[in-house]
């Protein structure tokens, strides 16, 4: 339903066109990297390392572990991977908060 008076008013309004001084914004460009998607991929890798360590821990407690160093190495690798992921995440959050601070 349209109110005749209102539609009569809107008919008289012409849309604002560009002034010609400013070119229209072309929208944000997609970054060349995959962004957060690639970060999630490394989390997947981390998950794989963690599950390897978990499997070896189960072997260690059930007495079927053949190589002690396999377990300690897997534990070290997953610890390093967790630290690496946390470091990258902290850097990303730092960058994000820095950008957010620009509006203040």
């Amino acid at each position: 339903m349209s109110i005749p008076a209102v539609s009569a008013v809107t008919a008289g309004i012409t849309p604002v066109t560009g002034t010609g001084y400013l070119s229209p914004a072309s929208g944000t460009q997609a970054a060349s990297g995959a962004g957060f998607a690639s970060a999630l991929g490394s989390v997947d890798q981390l998950q794989k390392l963690q599950s390897t360590t978990d499997a070896l821990a189960v072997k260690a407690v059930t007495g079927t572990l053949t190589d002690v160093h396999d377990y300690t190495i897997a534990a070290s690798e997953s610890k390093l991977a967790v630290e690496l992921t946390a470091a990258v995440r902290n850097k990303a959050i730092d960058a994000f908060t820095e950008i957010m601070r620009m509006q203040a």
């Binding site: 890798q45 190589d67 160093h69 396999d70 190495i73 070290s76 690798e77 390093l80 991977a81």
Partner: peptide, 16 residues
């Protein structure tokens, strides 16, 4: 990513 650790781990297995 942890290449050196993996290589040394294979050496550990052989010596074990």
């Amino acid at each position: 990513i942890f290449g050196a650790i993996g290589v040394a781990g294979s050496g550990l297995t052989v010596y074990r």
